[in-house]
Each structure stands twice: as C-alpha cells, then as structure tokens.
Design a protein around this nucleic acid. Structure first.
Length: 437
RNA sequence: GUGUCUGUAGCUCAAUGGUUAGAGCGCCUGACUGUGGAUCAGGAGGCUGUGGGUUCAAUCCCCAUCAGACACCCCA
C-alpha cells in the first residue's frame, strides 16, 4: 500500500459532493419527519445469519468475514433486514403501526458501474405493522413529495404487485419454481424490448405460446384503470392475482387525496424487482433523464419480520439511493450547489487589529451567521479578499483602523463588489437581512 | 462474477522504444504598500498507478496487480 487509494467501489466524498449529499439527506429527512417517521440507527455489522436467507439470489453479494472472536459477521446489505431484526427484537417497546426512517451506508460486493457502488447510502423509510392499502399509499405519496422537493423534473413511479406477476406466470402455465427467471426476463423489457424478452423467456424453458402470452400481459400500458381492467380480464380465475389487483386499486384510490396525481405513477406489470422478501406491492421511481437504474425502490414485505421468530408483521417501505439521486442531480444540474458552509469572511487588517476582527466574528457567529476569519494577521487585504472570493463566500468584512475609530464595519458584497459601511452594532442584523435569514 | 477500454503535474490532456517528459487551467510570488474576480512577469510541482518481464535502452511492447469507465448480470 504505497499509494493512497480507495477500495474498489468505495468512495470519498469531498466537500462539494458532500454539501449536495447533505442537502439531499436533509430534504428527505424533512419529508419523512413531516409524515411523523422516527429515526433509528443500527450497526453496519450484523451476524451473517441475520442477513442470510432473506435476500434470495443477491445473497452472494453480501460482504462476509470473521471477526477477532471468530464470529461470522456481515456488512449490512440494506437497511430493511436490520429493521426487521429490530422490530422482532424490541417488539415490546414499539407501538405499532410504527413509522421509522434510517439513513446510512450499506454494502454490496458487486462490480461497480454507473450509479452503482459497493458502499452506498440509502435513506430508508418503512411503515411497520399495517397491512392497510393506506400504508402503501402513504409511502408512495412520500416518495412523490420527496422527488418533487428535490426538484426532479420528470419522474415516474412504476407500481406492481408480486401476485400480479405470480398470476401472469400461473396463467401461462408455469411452475412456481420457474417464476424467478420469468421475473428477471420481464424486468428487462424496457432494456431489451419485447423480442428480447421473448427470446429470454424461451431460453428459460417457457413455451412459445406462454412467452407470447406473458409478453402481451407485461406490455400493457395506459391509464392505471385501463391496465388494471385489462389485467383483471386476463388473469380471471387466479384468486391471488385478483386480490392483488383489488389491493392495487385500493392503494391508487387513496393517492389522489394524498396529493399524488395520475401522471406521476403507472401500473407496470413488467416491474419485478429482485429482492425476494417482497410479498405484495413493489415499486420504483425512474426518470427518463437517467438510464442507470432506479432512484429508489420499495415494496411490501409482510413475512420478513416473522422470519426472526415471532409473528409476522406486515410492513411496507422504500429506500432512496442517495448516491444515485446525487449523481443524477449533478448531471442534470438540479439543486443548490454551495461551495462552502461559511457565509461571511471577516478580514484581519493587521496583527494590531486581530482582536477587533475576532470579536466581530464571535458576535456574528452568536447571531447565527456562519463566519470565518483570516488566521494570519500579516496577510494583506488583497489576498484575503481573493481567498473569500475563491471560497465562494458572499460577504467580506473589513474592520481596519478607520472603521474601529468610527465604530463601523465595512461590508463588501463579493458577488457584485458593492460595499457599504454600517455601524458596528448593526452589523449582525444587517448581514442577517442581506443573507435572507 | 464475465467481457471491452483506460491509468502521464492538483485538473483536462500532449509526446517519443533512446540525452533534463510538455501545454492549458489551477496553485505560489511579485507588479498592486486599506480591497478579490482582468492583465503581465516569474516560480513550484511528475521515479509516466504499482510490481515484474522483453530490450543495450521503456512512459511507449508483454504479463500480473490495483483503481476507474462502459456493456452483461443485477440492483439503490
């Protein structure tokens, strides 16, 4: 290790990136809390067996190792399984239904690609302990509010139900066991097109007729009502699918009152999603401006918590991909792009004036203004202004001998060069106003 | 995990199988001794990702390794 370097797929986030990330996280948390979701944090390291047996195929991507005590441990793969562990473990202390959120990193040993990293952050929100369609609707409403608050221009939430897909497979005469590869094939519809899916299905052993039938179903598009109607016709006789369709209809029925308009979502029978713990609704949000994966994903998993030994607790939730949101916003130029956290730069005229500047800075900070000063009193003013400019500060203040004598402060607007002198006692108030605080 | 491509100064990129590897931007200093973004003049900064090999000689050719990009797989 002669050269400092990152582990593959694990990134450093320097201030410019971090400031945007914080904006994203703060925005999401704001929406979560507006809906009364409560924060929790769980360890990044879990017993390997806690994570095993919950994810399906993806399990091979779990980071596993032995700790010093020889315990088989793993880095968490998402925040959903740890949540399920927590709910099972603290059932006596939780009042259900429980709205909780959690923000932090998860780890997957995948080959990194665009919008995909081995360490990635998710903002996860789940509504634990309710099977009501209102719960599903609330999660979808929240995701819609969040993407709008972040400023995403055109996004769509694709909505489906595991038992709709199951029904499609059953109606096509497929064994339950074959369903997995069918899910994967139809999930690729947007990428490889109908012919591609047809080939893919046949490759997995589906008959030509069945493939054609499946394809006709998963390609359904149009208004949610139309798609649901059509699915109901074609899946007739499959009870579980009928129940799923009724459930979707009930959820959609609440969306309007929750502020979600019909053009912001669509029923998409092709949406499968890989995680095996989903049992009901599944959804993800995509934007046409970003080809590399969804911005968030989620669904209902009514059996996962029960896997930790106690009774099942119906739950629906979602995870925003912070890194993807960041990458897309960066690429599309969405959102604020602050260069720094400081707002005001207090110059130091000379060593003799150092304390006057420090005192002023202290007062400004006490007034809530983010303030930095020069550290070296021997630096000439020109250099200090240059630094203030480079750092992207909005105002530079001067308290030289003249200002001290007149008990004033000079405030210079670094964006347009306008400079004014105000009474020392008014400096904080004036700045607060100029900063729009 | 599979395949393809890439890796030279802080950043974006040049260059040649052979003496001290270049440019722009950025950075530092000065012209400007109470005021930044312009201009001009100087300056610092590279064992060419790392480790091997071929060769009289390698940044350039070969192998490995690490990291990155893209596609596949799959997902946030």
């Amino acid at each position: 290790m002669e050269q400092p370097q990152n582990i593959k797929g694990m990134r450093d986030h320097l201030p410019p990136a971090m400031l945007l990330r914080q904006h994203i996280i703060n925005t999401l948390v704001g929406i979560f809390e507006r809906h009364g979701f409560e924060p929790i944090t769980t360890p990044i390291v879990e017993y390997a067996e806690t994570l095993e047996g919950k994810l399906g195929d993806e399990e091979k991507l779990i980071y596993r190792f032995e700790d010093h005590g020889g315990r088989r441990v793993a880095l968490r793969y998402d925040q959903t399984v740890p949540l399920a562990r927590v709910v099972a473990q603290y059932s006596g202390q939780l009042t259900l239904p429980w709205r909780r959120y959690s923000v932090g990193p998860s780890y997957r040993g995948e080959r990194p690609a665009r919008g995909r990293y081995r360490e990635f952050w998710q903002a996860d929100a789940d509504l634990v302990g309710s099977a009501s369609p209102v719960a599903d609707a609330e999660i979808i409403a929240m995701l819609t509010e969040a993407l709008a608050a972040l400023g995403f221009p055109g996004f769509t939430t694709l909505l489906n139900h595991r038992q709709v897909i199951g029904g499609i497979a059953r109606v096509s005469g497929l064994e339950e066991a074959a369903a997995g590869s069918v899910y994967r094939a139809i999930d690729k519809l947007d990428k490889i097109g109908p012919d591609g899916v047809h080939d893919e299905l046949q490759k997995t052993g589906v008959t030509e007729d069945a493939a054609t039938g499946i394809l006709a179903l998963v390609q359904l598009e149009g208004s949610s009502a139309d798609v649901l109607h059509e699915l109901r016709q074609r899946l007739q006789g499959d009870e579980r699918a009928m129940a799923a369709l009724a459930n979707l209809e009930a959820i959609i029925g609440h969306l309007d009152s929750m502020g979600v308009s019909p053009e912001q979502y669509q029923v998409a029978p092709r949406l499968a999603r890989g995680l095996s713990y989903y049992t009901g609704t599944v959804f993800e949000a995509i934007t046409s401006h970003w080809p590399a994966g969804s911005l968030l994903g989620g669904g209902r998993y009514d059996e996962l918590i029960g896997m930790f030994g106690k009774q099942s607790v119906p739950t629906v939730g979602l995870a925003f991909g912070i890194d993807r949101l960041h990458d897309v916003m960066e690429e599309l130029g969405i959102g604020p792009r602050p260069q720094t956290t400081a707002q005001v730069y207090v110059t130091v005229f000379s060593d003799a004036q150092m304390d006057a500047s420090l005192r002023l800075a202290h007062e400004l900070r006490a007034a809530g203004i983010h303030t930095i000063t020069t550290l070296d009193g021997g630096t000439n003013l020109g250099k200090q202004f240059k630094e203030a400019d480079k750092r992207g500060l909005r105002f530079a203040l001067v308290v030289g001998p003249d200002e001290v004598e007149r008990n004033e402060v000079a405030i210079r607007n670094m964006q347009n060069g306008a400079q004014r002198t105000v009474p020392r006692s008014a400096a904080a108030a004036v700045l607060r106003e100029m900063l729009g605080m």
